[in-house]
């Protein structure tokens, strides 16, 4: 493990912060993508026959829902890799992508509720399978973030977190199915993507929006990972650096004392 830490550290020490040309390019692409999606979503696409303008929230709601699932799955894969290779970087990738996944999950619930109020006449509907299962999943991963927040020995924390991330990912189908059987009904639309009822431009906008949001996920996760990596380096290398600094100071002090023995009686005494 030490060698992986060392390698990763060496490759990252040249990195001054969470940004570089790669993330900047990705960020600019995301921004341009969002502008194009917003223009298409608000002006170019037609309102829905039944839902009217409300349908436009779909261009955010569906992509963030996909983004949160991607975050959870990436988190589980990175955690599995951590348990095999014990690479601290993989642990931090898991942390970063699950944090973004939780954020996207909360956004999914909020956008769903905002859409639900005018459409169903209520912000929350316990009869809706997807709503309830998303809430339980987000709570599951909030627990993961709470576990990461307690501190303590970093290795044991990484191990515990990795196990929770993998277990939680396996809970996704169980939670989905149990909630599904619980009410056995849903107000939710069937998948807008696959039911073949979308017009060409609407479909194009939705797919483009999903693509842009996934790019946004990559951008956010990379940034979050870099930040976590810097924190990790600070914690991991902080003590070693501090000792090295004190040592260097001590050596400088001794050299100064040799060069000018009369200035400081204390160092003169130690020299004698």
């Amino acid at each position: 493990m030490t060698s992986t830490v060392q390698d990763a550290t060496n490759s990252a020490t040249g990195n001054p912060g969470p940004s570089d040309s790669g993330t900047r390019t990705t960020g600019i692409l995301c921004l341009l993508g969002f502008i194009v999606v917003a223009a298409l979503a608000f002006f170019a696409t037609e309102p829905d026959d039944v839902q009217g303008d409300l349908v436009r929230i779909m261009y955010v709601h569906v992509p963030v829902a996909i983004m949160s699932y991607v975050g959870f799955v990436v988190g589980a894969i990175a955690s599995g890799y951590y348990l095999r290779k014990r690479s601290p970087a993989a642990d931090l990738v898991a942390q970063a992508s699950i944090e973004i996944g939780v954020l996207a999950g909360v956004l999914t619930i909020v956008t769903g509720a905002v859409w639900g109020q005018p459409t169903w006449g209520t912000y929350w509907n316990w009869g809706d399978v997807r709503l309830v299962s998303m809430l339980v999943l987000v709570l599951l991963y909030v627990g993961y973030l709470a576990l990461r927040g307690v501190g303590g020995d970093p290795t044991s924390q990484a191990r515990r977190s990795a196990v929770v991330a993998i277990l939680s990912a396996f809970m996704i189908p169980i939670v989905r199915n149990s909630v599904d059987w619980w009410k056995n009904r849903t107000l939710h639309q069937t998948s807008s993507l696959t039911d073949g009822q979308l017009e060409d431009l609407t479909l194009f906008t939705l797919v483009l929006s999903i693509g842009v949001f996934l790019l946004f996920f990559v951008w956010l996760t990379t940034k979050r990972f870099r930040l976590a990596w810097l924190e990790y380096q600070r914690d991991e290398l902080g003590l070693g650096d501090a000792i090295a600094q004190r040592r260097a100071e001590a050596e400088r002090g001794v050299e100064a004392a040799i060069a000018n023995p009369l200035r400081d009686p204390a160092s003169k005494g130690s020299e004698a």
Partner: peptide, 11 residues
């Protein structure tokens, strides 16, 4: 922590 982690799992 245990309730936060376990109760959603037991849903």
């Amino acid at each position: 922590l245990l309730p936060i982690l376990l109760l959603p799992v037991l849903a």
